[in-house]
Design a binder for these strands. Structure first.
Lengths: 215, 215
DNA sequence: ATATGTGAATTGATTCACAGCG
DNA sequence: CGCTGTGAATCAATTCACATAT
């Protein structure tokens, strides 16, 4: 298979979300136009993105909401369950632990880890908190495939290597650090401070333009 | 000015972060090669990204860490302070409220909003929590320019419109919804569930490849 | 000597137009 | 007739090579 643009994968996730809201509204059939409007992309884009993976519509009639949703689940690997661990049970880690929508998408939170002795041994949102040094055994015990990394920046790379050594191949990194991903490990960065800075740029650039236009 | 690729803006944010770690290590001078290695991009890319905005290095010698850092702050609009509000004081909103690094980058958290009557009137991490219906006055009172939107998906679009009407032009959206941004409003999406799904795709695609290779 | 800054070349992604199917 | 699926064309971003400055 030709390699898929990662932007396409990101948009598939969006289409899936849109399909869910359509299904909630009782809508059974849709079109690339509909999906495009809701996802804020072009209808060409929707069709091209789907075309990388197959043919899911009926010409003249559009797409079946349920069927397309099922296909997208399959493509994104969401039909199977993924076992998830949280590394770092600070504010953010705890907030993620009782985020309800994770289970809805087959992400099963199995374990949490922290260095603070007072947290170790507690149970947060039904999930046991282990010491970081137990990570290798516990990751294997719970068959963890994906980690949510919420440790402070300084510890992120070390944690990544420990996770990789324990066999974890997917990491969602919440730290403001560029990780050097070990061979075979996929890292997705979620950096809200970076998002804030991009907003700052957008507002700032706009203001400078206005000033220039006014002069 | 020619329009800047948004990917470039994202990378500038990364370079800034790398420069901060270099400065912490007492490093005074750097090069496009160094920055590239730390940011995991090519040196060409670093130079091209910077070239959109000017000439910041000395040929033969590289870049001054402090000077480049100052320039990037200026470019990204981080020299001035931005007043920030959090909309939705659930788990995530509260976690964001006492995230310490925001102030370091001149993002000043001024106010928080929630619909729950028992939260209204409390002070979280030094920040007053107001009722959603007070949003117009309070946003103006605190001169809020940027909002962190952490309300559930259903309420996100309505909150966006209320914010826009109150004069907020920058929104970081944590909800799993595609927002229709009102005219002149910039939205940055931070969606960790989407990140998790992209990881799922990466691991799943890899596994399918392996199976195909083995057959 | 060395590392930046930049036009030219290349690669990749998006847009388009329409052929093909229901 | 309508809407999908897709090769071709356009547009944008990345990579490269090297002239240029210190």
């Amino acid at each position: 298979m030709a390699s898929i643009p990662s932007a396409t994968v990101g948009r598939l996730v969006t289409y899936l979300r849109v399909l869910a809201t359509l299904a909630d509204r009782g809508i059974v059939r849709t079109s690339s136009d509909d999906l495009a409007r809701e996802a804020r992309v072009s209808a060409f884009q929707v069709r091209k993105d789907l075309a990388y993976f197959g043919r899911f519509g009926t010409r003249g009639a559009g797409y079946d909401v349920d069927a397309l949703s099922t296909e997208l689940h399959r493509i994104l690997g969401l039909e199977r369950a993924w076992n998830v661990a949280i590394i770092g049970m600070g504010r953010l880690g705890s907030a993620l632990a009782d985020y309800p929508n994770m289970a809805r998408y087959n992400f099963c939170l199995q374990a949490a880890f922290d260095v603070a002795p007072e947290k170790v041994g507690t149970v947060v949102a039904g999930v046991p908190v282990y010491a970081m040094r137990e990570l290798p055994e516990r990751v294997r015990e719970h068959d963890v495939q994906v980690a949510l990394l919420t440790v402070p920046g300084e510890g992120a790379q070390a944690a990544t290597e420990a996770l990789a050594a324990a066999g974890v191949r997917g990491i969602v990194n919440f730290a403001s650090t560029v990780l050097d991903p070990p061979e075979g490990v996929h890292v997705e960065a979620i950096d809200f401070l970076a998002g804030l800075k991009r907003v700052s740029y957008a507002l700032h650039a706009e203001t400078s333009d206005d000033e220039r236009a006014a002069s």
